[in-house]
Design a protein around this nucleic acid. Structure first.
Lengths: 264, 264
DNA sequence: AACAACTGTGTAAGCCGTCTACTATTTCTC
DNA sequence: GAGAAATAGTAGACGGCTTACACAGTTGTT
């Protein structure tokens, strides 16, 4: 590790350096997410807080009120410091978001060895559940894709899919297919709650959802978009226990498609 | 149309009313997107501008510099008015974004009647291309889902898929599957440009992409995430003309899965 | 034709967010 | 113990969203 030379007040960004490559060119937060920061040889007072603590508080706020609540002023206020003190730990808001998202991914599940299809389905279901439990993760822009936990999930799936004998690129494409479905399915579920979830909601929310339904139905039909209108007000869509969940249905189709490709 | 009674300075939101339902409970921009606004019986001066003009300017800005550039101050400056004058036309930033997104969707393509599979593939490819040509559309939060153009796309696809004889809910699920793939595939393409696109980029961007690749490879391998590392630096992934595009590959798997379901 | 009501625009301001100097203080090292 | 270095605080710039108010212009009514 090359110790920094430049004196004066600097931010956490200046602590991120490397052996040879110029990490300054990396997207914000990427180096930090992979733990590539210079933590040795500090001289001044010990930091009163830590990046982990900041991320934990930001996670609390995001869990409570969504990703927008994880702002630097609010995190700082909850910790008990001023906003700018956070810049000693995190070089920018973007970096905080990247770290936040990586932490929210968590560790991938252990997948069984034998049946690739069963393992892939388990993977997708677990990811789907994770997105449902942390909806704000869907709001994190996906410009920076690979962080440690993120990559661990992908690695687990690729390892499983690799046992089918597909080419590496096709394996990756299949992995993205399942990742996409988990993400998009969770987003859809969030936007269109199940009847059971709707019954648990506030009366205000219930009324709002109903108002949207009525409004959309009238508008759709007045524009002759009857196919959509019919699908949306389908009795199955409003039934209590959907006979076949949308996520599971799509997952089965995708796995069928992959299986057909593998067996050819 | 019930004319407004309340006097005093009011925003564009107050113009959105209805026959009987309370549109005030609708999400911001939804009523405006469907054109349900009270445009009759104005008394004051003619507006010097229009909502269409504002959306067009915002689209320009988004095309040039991304969705963040479509801010009210910048739109107002380009039109030549103050920021707050926009609130006579649009009730909030969220409403502007909804209108912007709906306009960007545009009209769906005309789909052939005979072969549902070919028609669905065409639909997905067209949507994919549309997302590529307007990448900022991927950054629009999808909380408000159904706006006129949006719904027209969905209607076209559902109509085609309905010819397979599937149940309404399954048709909708399949439609979401294809929508998801187009959206997510375009997002992936944007984040990981093709070699050809990379060669067209700035030297700075090329260097940045290469730095990320080198960094990720070393980090992935040092954490034993070799499956991901191998997949990413696969020769096929870096080849000039990919033998099978990721989007097309996934599309074929999805359509295969749907076809197998239909034929059963 | 004159008045009143209403609408569009500008000015000003408040609030929140990110981020950058600068200062004071604490702590580690020599 | 003295100096150096890092941390936290203060102040502030800058941009974005939004509201309140005053003014000017237009339209409908008397």
């Amino acid at each position: 590790m090359t110790p920094r030379k430049s004196p004066g007040p600097d931010s956490a960004r200046d602590r991120a350096n490397a052996d040879d490559a110029d990490f300054g060119a990396l997207p914000p937060g990427l180096a930090a997410a992979w733990g590539v920061v210079d933590t040795g040889g500090r001289r001044g007072p010990k930091p009163a807080h830590s990046v982990e603590k900041i991320i934990a508080v930001a996670t609390e706020l995001a869990d409570e009120e969504g990703i927008a609540a994880a702002s630097l002023p609010r995190v700082a206020a909850r910790i008990g410091v001023t906003t700018n003190a956070l810049y000693r730990y995190v070089s920018s808001k973007d970096e905080l978001i990247v770290l936040l998202a990586d932490r929210a991914w968590g560790d991938p599940p252990a997948l069984p060895d034998g049946d690739w299809r069963e393992a892939a389905a388990l993977w997708a279901r677990q990811l789907f559940e994770r997105f449902l439990s942390r909806p704000w993760l869907l709001d994190v822009p996906t410009t920076v894709s690979l962080t440690p936990h993120n990559a661990a999930w992908l690695d687990a799936l690729i390892t499983v899919l690799g046992s089918t004998g597909m080419a590496a690129q096709q394996t990756l494409n299949c992995a993205y297919l399942l990742d996409s479905h988990a993400r998009y399915g969770a987003n859809l579920r969030r936007n269109t709650p199940t009847p059971a979830a709707l019954r648990r909601a506030n009366p205000d929310q219930q009324r709002a959802v109903r108002a949207v339904r009525v409004f959309l139905d009238s508008q759709l039909r007045s524009r002759n978009l009857n196919a959509v209108a019919d699908a949306i007000e389908d009795p199955m869509f409003l039934a209590d226990e959907a006979p076949l969940d949308g996520f599971e249905f799509g997952l089965a189709r995708i796995l069928d498609g992959i299986e057909a490709y593998v067996q050819r």
